[in-house]
Simulated assay, not measured.
Amino acid sequence: MTRSAIQTSDAAPPAGPYSQAIRAGDLLFVSGQLPLDPRGSLVGHGDIKAQTKQVFDNIAAILREAGSSLEQVVKTTVFLTSLDDFSSMNEVYASVFKSPYPARSTVEIGRLPGGMLLEVECIALVERTPS
């Protein structure tokens, strides 16, 4: 199986040696996205709803670049610096996805750099490219 990197300037650039996403067959593995705009600046300092929206804007841009969409997401993992933010994050999350919702795990982590409150990664389906 071949794999290919996905990169778009419509989402925050990687902050290290990793790809925004990797396509492997009909699956797309999107790296953890942070609440950074496409220039790499933090959005919504201290505001979990604004940060969650930015994270999903980044994910949507990466999915589009790969030929997928939020409707094709099958699994998400949400990392929160405080589970006290779960309800507010979940409100935005519920506006992003429709039923049937993706499978999801949500975990509290120690911290993220620079005032970031969450990170989200996902796995999505991608249409097979005609051969």
Score class of each variant (00 low, 15 high):
residue 102 P to H: 10
residue 108 E to Y: 00
residue 119 E to M: 06
residue 92 V to R: 01
residue 94 A to E: 13
residue 90 N to Y: 00
residue 118 L to C: 11
residue 113 P to N: 08
residue 112 L to R: 11
residue 117 L to W: 00
residue 102 P to M: 11
residue 104 R to S: 14
residue 112 L to P: 10
residue 99 S to E: 11
residue 110 G to H: 07
residue 97 F to V: 08
residue 111 R to C: 12
residue 98 K to S: 15
residue 92 V to L: 03
residue 99 S to A: 14
residue 105 S to D: 15
residue 93 Y to D: 02
residue 103 A to N: 13
residue 93 Y to S: 03
residue 101 Y to F: 14
residue 90 N to L: 00
residue 108 E to I: 01
residue 104 R to Y: 07
residue 114 G to E: 10
residue 119 E to W: 00
residue 90 N to P: 01
residue 90 N to I: 00
residue 115 G to N: 04
residue 102 P to K: 11
residue 100 P to G: 12
residue 90 N to Q: 03
residue 119 E to C: 09
residue 102 P to T: 12
residue 109 I to H: 01
residue 118 L to G: 05
residue 115 G to L: 04
residue 109 I to C: 02
residue 91 E to Y: 03
residue 111 R to K: 15
residue 107 V to W: 02
residue 111 R to L: 11
residue 89 M to K: 02
residue 103 A to S: 15
residue 119 E to Y: 00
residue 103 A to T: 15
residue 99 S to Y: 08
residue 95 S to K: 13
residue 98 K to R: 14
residue 113 P to M: 07
residue 89 M to A: 04
residue 107 V to M: 08
residue 99 S to K: 12
residue 116 M to Q: 07
residue 96 V to W: 04
residue 94 A to K: 14
residue 117 L to I: 01
residue 97 F to N: 06
residue 107 V to A: 07
residue 110 G to N: 15
residue 103 A to G: 15
residue 106 T to Y: 04
residue 96 V to F: 04
residue 117 L to K: 01
residue 108 E to R: 01
residue 113 P to L: 07
residue 91 E to C: 02
residue 102 P to Y: 08
residue 94 A to P: 11
residue 94 A to Y: 07
residue 94 A to L: 15
residue 115 G to F: 04
residue 93 Y to R: 06
residue 115 G to K: 06
residue 99 S to N: 11
residue 106 T to G: 08
residue 110 G to Y: 03
residue 106 T to V: 14
residue 110 G to W: 00
residue 105 S to E: 14
residue 103 A to W: 11
residue 99 S to I: 09
residue 105 S to C: 10
residue 114 G to I: 09
residue 118 L to T: 06
residue 92 V to E: 00
residue 95 S to H: 12
residue 115 G to M: 06
residue 109 I to R: 01
residue 90 N to A: 05
residue 113 P to A: 10
residue 118 L to H: 00
residue 110 G to E: 14
residue 99 S to W: 05
residue 101 Y to R: 10
residue 117 L to S: 00
residue 109 I to G: 00
residue 117 L to A: 03
residue 104 R to Q: 15
residue 94 A to R: 12
residue 108 E to H: 02
residue 91 E to P: 06
residue 93 Y to P: 04
residue 90 N to W: 00
residue 97 F to S: 07
residue 116 M to H: 02
residue 115 G to V: 05
residue 108 E to M: 03
residue 116 M to E: 02
residue 91 E to K: 03
residue 92 V to T: 06
residue 101 Y to M: 10
residue 103 A to R: 13
residue 98 K to L: 10
residue 117 L to E: 00
residue 109 I to T: 03
residue 107 V to I: 08
residue 107 V to Q: 08
residue 99 S to M: 10
residue 98 K to T: 12
residue 97 F to L: 04
residue 106 T to R: 06
residue 97 F to C: 08
residue 110 G to M: 12
residue 97 F to I: 07
residue 107 V to P: 02
residue 102 P to G: 12
residue 100 P to Y: 10
residue 90 N to D: 05
residue 111 R to T: 14
residue 94 A to D: 13
residue 116 M to Y: 02
residue 93 Y to L: 04
residue 107 V to Y: 05
residue 105 S to H: 09
residue 96 V to A: 09
residue 91 E to D: 09
residue 97 F to E: 03
residue 102 P to S: 10
residue 118 L to D: 06
residue 104 R to P: 06
residue 94 A to V: 08
residue 90 N to S: 05
residue 98 K to N: 10
residue 97 F to Q: 05
residue 117 L to Q: 01
residue 116 M to P: 01
residue 103 A to K: 14
residue 111 R to N: 15
residue 101 Y to A: 11
